[in-house]
Amino acid sequence: MSALPMPDADLIQQCLRGQRSAFPILYRRYQRQVRGTLFQLCGAAELDDLVQEVFFRAWKGLPKFRQSAQFSTWLYRIAWNVATDRRRAQGQARSQSLPVPPAPSAEPSTLTQLHYEDVVQRGLQTLSWEHRAVIVLHDLEDLPQQEVASILHIPKGTVKSRLHHARSALRTFLQQEGIQL
Protein backbone atom coordinates (compact mmCIF):
# COMPACT_ATOMS: atom_id res chain seq x y z
CA MET A 1 0.00 0.00 0.00
CA SER A 2 1.52 3.31 -1.08
CA ALA A 3 1.41 6.36 1.15
CA LEU A 4 -0.91 9.18 0.23
CA PRO A 5 0.82 12.06 -1.52
CA MET A 6 1.61 14.93 0.74
CA PRO A 7 -0.88 17.79 0.31
CA ASP A 8 0.28 20.91 -1.49
CA ALA A 9 -0.23 23.01 1.62
CA ASP A 10 2.18 20.86 3.62
CA LEU A 11 4.81 21.01 0.90
CA ILE A 12 4.45 24.77 0.76
CA GLN A 13 4.89 25.02 4.51
CA GLN A 14 8.05 22.95 4.24
CA CYS A 15 9.37 25.27 1.55
CA LEU A 16 8.61 28.27 3.74
CA ARG A 17 10.52 26.64 6.60
CA GLY A 18 13.54 26.48 4.33
CA GLN A 19 13.28 22.88 3.13
CA ARG A 20 14.03 23.30 -0.56
CA SER A 21 13.64 19.59 -1.13
CA ALA A 22 9.86 20.03 -1.00
CA PHE A 23 9.76 22.25 -4.05
CA PRO A 24 10.84 19.61 -6.61
CA ILE A 25 7.85 17.56 -5.49
CA LEU A 26 5.55 20.44 -6.34
CA TYR A 27 7.43 20.90 -9.61
CA ARG A 28 6.99 17.26 -10.64
CA ARG A 29 3.37 17.34 -9.61
CA TYR A 30 2.46 20.30 -11.82
CA GLN A 31 5.13 20.70 -14.48
CA ARG A 32 3.18 18.68 -17.04
CA GLN A 33 0.14 20.96 -16.80
CA VAL A 34 2.26 24.10 -16.81
CA ARG A 35 4.31 22.88 -19.75
CA GLY A 36 1.24 21.84 -21.73
CA THR A 37 -0.53 25.13 -21.13
CA LEU A 38 2.49 27.21 -22.09
CA PHE A 39 3.03 25.12 -25.18
CA GLN A 40 -0.55 25.57 -26.38
CA LEU A 41 -0.40 29.30 -25.69
CA CYS A 42 3.12 30.15 -26.84
CA GLY A 43 4.42 27.28 -28.92
CA ALA A 44 7.60 25.28 -28.51
CA ALA A 45 10.12 28.08 -28.78
CA GLU A 46 11.76 28.88 -25.43
CA LEU A 47 9.36 26.50 -23.72
CA ASP A 48 11.93 25.37 -21.15
CA ASP A 49 12.71 28.97 -20.28
CA LEU A 50 9.03 29.77 -19.84
CA VAL A 51 8.48 26.77 -17.59
CA GLN A 52 11.49 27.79 -15.52
CA GLU A 53 10.16 31.31 -15.24
CA VAL A 54 6.81 30.06 -13.95
CA PHE A 55 8.39 27.97 -11.22
CA PHE A 56 10.88 30.67 -10.28
CA ARG A 57 8.05 33.13 -9.85
CA ALA A 58 6.11 30.56 -7.86
CA TRP A 59 9.08 29.93 -5.59
CA LYS A 60 9.64 33.61 -4.95
CA GLY A 61 5.94 34.19 -4.43
CA LEU A 62 5.43 31.39 -1.91
CA PRO A 63 5.74 33.68 1.13
CA LYS A 64 2.84 35.71 -0.23
CA PHE A 65 0.75 32.76 -1.33
CA ARG A 66 -2.58 32.68 0.51
CA GLN A 67 -3.10 29.24 1.96
CA SER A 68 -6.83 29.55 1.38
CA ALA A 69 -6.26 29.55 -2.38
CA GLN A 70 -5.63 26.49 -4.48
CA PHE A 71 -1.99 26.12 -5.40
CA SER A 72 -2.78 24.79 -8.89
CA THR A 73 -5.02 27.78 -9.67
CA TRP A 74 -2.31 30.13 -8.46
CA LEU A 75 0.29 28.32 -10.57
CA TYR A 76 -1.91 28.47 -13.67
CA ARG A 77 -2.34 32.17 -13.02
CA ILE A 78 1.45 32.61 -12.97
CA ALA A 79 1.73 30.58 -16.18
CA TRP A 80 -0.87 32.83 -17.79
CA ASN A 81 1.07 35.92 -16.70
CA VAL A 82 4.34 34.52 -18.01
CA ALA A 83 2.71 33.66 -21.35
CA THR A 84 1.15 37.11 -21.60
CA ASP A 85 4.43 38.83 -20.75
CA ARG A 86 6.21 36.79 -23.39
CA ARG A 87 3.55 37.62 -25.97
CA ARG A 88 3.86 41.32 -25.19
CA ALA A 89 7.63 41.16 -25.41
CA GLN A 90 7.51 39.53 -28.79
CA GLY A 91 4.89 41.84 -30.18
CA GLN A 92 1.56 41.17 -31.71
CA ALA A 93 2.78 40.26 -35.19
CA ARG A 94 5.21 37.59 -34.16
CA SER A 95 2.86 36.06 -31.62
CA GLN A 96 0.32 35.43 -34.33
CA SER A 97 2.76 33.43 -36.37
CA LEU A 98 2.79 29.70 -36.12
CA PRO A 99 4.95 28.27 -33.39
CA VAL A 100 7.89 26.07 -34.11
CA PRO A 101 6.39 22.67 -34.85
CA PRO A 102 7.09 20.21 -32.10
CA ALA A 103 9.54 17.46 -32.73
CA PRO A 104 7.72 14.20 -33.36
CA SER A 105 8.95 12.73 -30.13
CA ALA A 106 5.87 10.78 -29.18
CA GLU A 107 5.88 8.02 -31.74
CA PRO A 108 3.38 9.26 -34.29
CA SER A 109 0.82 6.60 -34.72
CA THR A 110 -0.25 7.58 -38.18
CA LEU A 111 0.12 10.37 -40.66
CA THR A 112 -3.51 11.22 -40.06
CA GLN A 113 -2.80 11.81 -36.40
CA LEU A 114 0.05 14.15 -37.28
CA HIS A 115 -2.17 15.97 -39.73
CA TYR A 116 -4.89 16.41 -37.13
CA GLU A 117 -2.40 17.68 -34.58
CA ASP A 118 -1.20 20.23 -37.08
CA VAL A 119 -4.78 21.31 -37.77
CA VAL A 120 -5.55 21.68 -34.07
CA GLN A 121 -2.40 23.71 -33.54
CA ARG A 122 -3.20 26.01 -36.45
CA GLY A 123 -6.80 26.25 -35.35
CA LEU A 124 -5.73 27.46 -31.92
CA GLN A 125 -3.46 30.01 -33.55
CA THR A 126 -6.38 31.50 -35.46
CA LEU A 127 -8.13 32.37 -32.22
CA SER A 128 -7.62 35.61 -30.37
CA TRP A 129 -5.36 35.45 -27.33
CA GLU A 130 -8.31 35.59 -24.93
CA HIS A 131 -10.31 32.94 -26.78
CA ARG A 132 -7.29 30.67 -27.05
CA ALA A 133 -6.76 30.91 -23.31
CA VAL A 134 -10.25 29.69 -22.41
CA ILE A 135 -10.05 26.82 -24.90
CA VAL A 136 -6.66 25.74 -23.56
CA LEU A 137 -7.61 26.00 -19.90
CA HIS A 138 -11.15 24.67 -20.11
CA ASP A 139 -11.28 22.28 -23.04
CA LEU A 140 -7.71 21.01 -23.09
CA GLU A 141 -6.65 21.28 -19.43
CA ASP A 142 -10.16 20.34 -18.31
CA LEU A 143 -10.40 23.06 -15.68
CA PRO A 144 -13.85 24.11 -14.44
CA GLN A 145 -15.22 27.39 -15.71
CA GLN A 146 -15.04 28.93 -12.25
CA GLU A 147 -11.35 28.12 -11.98
CA VAL A 148 -10.69 29.51 -15.45
CA ALA A 149 -12.45 32.68 -14.35
CA SER A 150 -10.19 32.88 -11.29
CA ILE A 151 -7.04 32.31 -13.33
CA LEU A 152 -7.89 34.92 -15.93
CA HIS A 153 -9.48 37.33 -13.43
CA ILE A 154 -12.68 37.58 -15.43
CA PRO A 155 -16.31 36.80 -14.54
CA LYS A 156 -17.57 33.28 -15.11
CA GLY A 157 -20.09 34.64 -17.60
CA THR A 158 -17.25 36.01 -19.69
CA VAL A 159 -15.61 32.60 -19.69
CA LYS A 160 -18.83 31.06 -20.99
CA SER A 161 -19.19 33.70 -23.65
CA ARG A 162 -15.59 33.37 -24.84
CA LEU A 163 -15.88 29.61 -24.82
CA HIS A 164 -18.97 29.78 -27.00
CA HIS A 165 -17.36 32.07 -29.56
CA ALA A 166 -14.01 30.26 -29.54
CA ARG A 167 -15.62 26.86 -30.13
CA SER A 168 -17.71 28.30 -32.91
CA ALA A 169 -14.61 29.72 -34.59
CA LEU A 170 -12.75 26.42 -34.19
CA ARG A 171 -15.63 24.46 -35.70
CA THR A 172 -15.64 26.77 -38.69
CA PHE A 173 -11.88 26.38 -39.08
CA LEU A 174 -12.05 22.59 -38.91
CA GLN A 175 -14.81 22.53 -41.50
CA GLN A 176 -12.68 24.67 -43.78
CA GLU A 177 -9.90 22.13 -43.31
CA GLY A 178 -12.24 19.40 -44.44
CA ILE A 179 -12.75 17.87 -41.00
CA GLN A 180 -16.28 16.84 -40.15
CA LEU A 181 -16.90 16.20 -36.48
Binding site: D48, V51, S105, Q113, Y116, D118, V120, D139, R171, L174
Partner: peptide, 23 residues
Protein backbone atom coordinates in the same frame (compact mmCIF):
# COMPACT_ATOMS: atom_id res chain seq x y z
CA UNK B 1 -15.28 19.20 -30.77
CA UNK B 2 -13.71 19.03 -27.29
CA UNK B 3 -13.07 15.33 -27.70
CA UNK B 4 -11.39 15.95 -31.04
CA UNK B 5 -9.21 18.69 -29.59
CA UNK B 6 -8.10 16.54 -26.67
CA UNK B 7 -7.29 13.54 -28.82
CA UNK B 8 -5.31 15.56 -31.31
CA UNK B 9 -3.69 18.25 -29.24
CA UNK B 10 0.01 18.32 -30.04
CA UNK B 11 2.19 17.18 -27.19
CA UNK B 12 4.86 19.63 -26.03
CA UNK B 13 8.44 18.66 -26.72
CA UNK B 14 10.14 16.97 -23.78
CA UNK B 15 12.00 19.14 -21.32
CA UNK B 16 15.77 19.32 -21.39
CA UNK B 17 17.19 16.49 -19.25
CA UNK B 18 18.83 18.81 -16.74
CA UNK B 19 16.02 21.35 -16.58
CA UNK B 20 14.76 20.38 -13.14
CA UNK B 21 18.22 20.11 -11.61
CA UNK B 22 19.29 23.45 -13.09
CA UNK B 23 16.18 25.12 -11.82
Amino acid sequence: LVDFLRRHRPAPPPAAPQLEAQM
